[in-house]
């Protein structure tokens, strides 16, 4: 099913999104990948304040290529989500509601998603030029020294994703795991 959803995700939207839905997201996303996750996690562990509000947001696992003059961003496709798995349950417990990446998630992440009612979307890996067209503005909000891994706030319009794991824990990838049927 095709759905047009605005961000931040609302509770009823999260409930209605099912694994396999094709979704066009519009609104605010935050980027974070390996190094930013590590810093967020360490900040949480040591009770420091975070500059980004985790509650209710959607994270995009993405580190863009530099923008050419006159463009808002360079190539901007998803990175492999499983590298964030170590940190994700903690973030979900603090209110993270949506994640965009590519590839499988751990059992711990799925359980934390069910418990906290969150959604994991996949964007098409390796389609960074195409996906960049849906990004309308970019602001660096935290960890600027990390370069491409800094946390950015993005404004997106009809950003194309597919629900892979829904808030009931149904995982679309389970259907195509390479086991002979």
């Amino acid at each position: 099913m095709e759905k047009y959803i605005s961000l931040p995700l609302k509770e009823e939207d999260i409930r209605s999104l099912k694994a396999g839905d094709m979704v066009f997201l519009s609104g605010e996303l935050y980027t974070a990948r390996d190094a930013a996750h590590k810093r967020i996690y360490e900040a949480i562990q040591s009770n420091q304040n975070l500059k980004i509000p985790l509650d209710g947001i959607t994270l995009y696992y993405m580190g863009p290529s530099p923008a050419r003059p006159g463009k808002v961003i360079g190539s901007a496709g998803p990175t492999t989500a499983s590298r964030m798995d170590k940190y994700t349950p903690t973030l979900l417990n603090l209110g993270l509601k949506g994640m965009i990446g590519k590839g499988k998630r751990s059992m711990e992440v799925k359980q934390a998603m069910i418990k906290n009612k969150a959604v994991y979307f996949a964007a098409i890996g390796g389609a960074g030029a195409l996906l960049s067209q849906a990004i309308k503005s970019v602001v660096i909000v935290e960890y600027e020294d990390l370069g491409t891994e800094a946390i950015r706030k993005l404004e997106v319009e009809n950003f194309p994703v597919i629900v892979v794991i829904d808030s009931d824990g149904t995982d679309l990838y389970d259907n195509y795991n390479g086991e002979m049927k």
Binding site: G63, S65, R68, G74, S75, G126, A127, A129, L130
Partner: peptide, 21 residues
């Protein structure tokens, strides 16, 4: 087909095909 479209945009707009260059 989106992967094909991505390649066309990359070449025309000079945006890397993938952000992981």
């Amino acid at each position: 087909s989106q992967i094909c479209e991505n390649m066309q945009i990359a070449g025309k707009e000079m945006i890397p095909i993938c952000q992981d260059t």
